[in-house]
């Protein structure tokens, strides 16, 4: 379990990184936290000829609020998301989600940009980006490109990033007064990849939803929004309505099968999550919004 021999370059600027990327093309891999890449290399599942280490690029770090946008640099580590007051105040969904990502040792190294660019369909952060309607900022030699999260994730380990681009940051609309977040996943053990998971943001008013984005993960080749959520918008919510919507949501899915769960089990768990998520969002909305 030793990686094949590879070259290593630690770049000093984004410009330098992009130059190296265009020089080596598909033979190169960007190294940030290394928590998915290095095990894959040790198993010889990938054998890049060169690793371009972007760890020194200060411009890819930092968490900041600019008017109604929260900007998080790609090199932000999971543990920084977990402890950031800005994230807790403006995107509490992320603070919740990070607790489910693997274990402390991995959270200390793994980065937001790395997770998004890796695009594991069972990963937590891509689904959060979708739920929060994030914009992903890619850097290329021609400048920045802004990509909506819904367009960014294109399949298993596949994204809209081009081989000569690097992921620089994400921008998230900050949480509004009446917005509530919810995150839950079903994993066999704490820290395992989920069998099914949901990341959601909603605006709750008068006991109903004026906005509802529920992004599910580990149930398709990429994170997906629940279309059935539309059934719950701007209507009086009843248990029957939730049950109908959760069944409708299950019918939207054609989940993959693996050792941990069959397709039908994933569909079943996703439906249960849908219902529990809606109930939890409503309860939180009532809690924060009083009688509403």
């Amino acid at each position: 379990m030793k990686a094949s021999a590879f070259d290593y370059a630690r770049v000093a600027s984004i410009h330098h990184a992009l130059e190296m990327l265009s020089l080596h093309g598909e033979q190169a891999k960007l190294l940030s936290g290394g928590q998915s890449l290095l095990p894959a290399m040790n198993l010889r599942l990938v054998s890049p000829q060169i690793l371009i280490d972007i760890g020194d690029l200060a411009e890819l770090r930092g968490i900041a609020v600019d008017s109604d946008v929260l900007r998080i640099g790609a090199l932000t580590r999971h543990v920084e998301l977990l402890t950031s007051h800005l994230v807790a105040a403006h995107a509490p969904l992320l603070s919740d989600a990070v607790k489910h990502i693997a274990h402390p040792a991995i959270r200390n190294r793994g980065t937001l940009g790395g997770s998004l660019a890796h695009a594991d369909p069972a990963a937590e952060l891509p689904a959060c980006m979708l739920a929060l309607n994030a914009t992903i900022i890619a850097c290329g030699r021609d400048g920045e490109r802004r990509i909506a999260a819904a367009e960014f994730f294109q399949g298993i380990y596949a994204t809209a990033l081009r081989p000569d681009e690097l992921l620089a940051a994400v921008e998230l609309p900050i949480a509004r007064q009446n917005s509530v977040d919810f995150f839950q996943e079903f994993a066999r053990r704490h820290g395992d990849y989920a069998l099914a998971g949901v990341a959601a943001r909603a605006s709750v008013a008068s006991g109903g939803f004026s906005k509802l984005r529920m992004a599910f993960f580990a149930i398709a080749d990429r994170p997906v929004l629940a279309n059935a959520a539309a059934k719950l918008l701007n209507v009086a919510i009843t248990p029957e309505l939730i049950a109908d919507a959760s069944v409708a949501f299950g019918n939207e899915l054609n989940p993959p099968e693996d050792q941990q769960a069959s397709s039908s089990m994933r569909r079943h768990l996703a439906s249960v999550l849908f219902r529990r998520c809606v109930e939890a969002l409503l309860a939180r909305g009532r809690l924060y919004g009083g009688a509403g």
């Binding site: 079903f186 066999r188 069998l195 941990q260 769960a261 069959s262 039908s264 089990m265 079943h268 768990l269």
Partner: peptide, 11 residues
């Protein structure tokens, strides 16, 4: 969970 849900006839 797969074994339990199968036994319960939920899948």
């Amino acid at each position: 969970p797969q074994v339990i849900l199968t036994a319960l006839g939920r899948l």
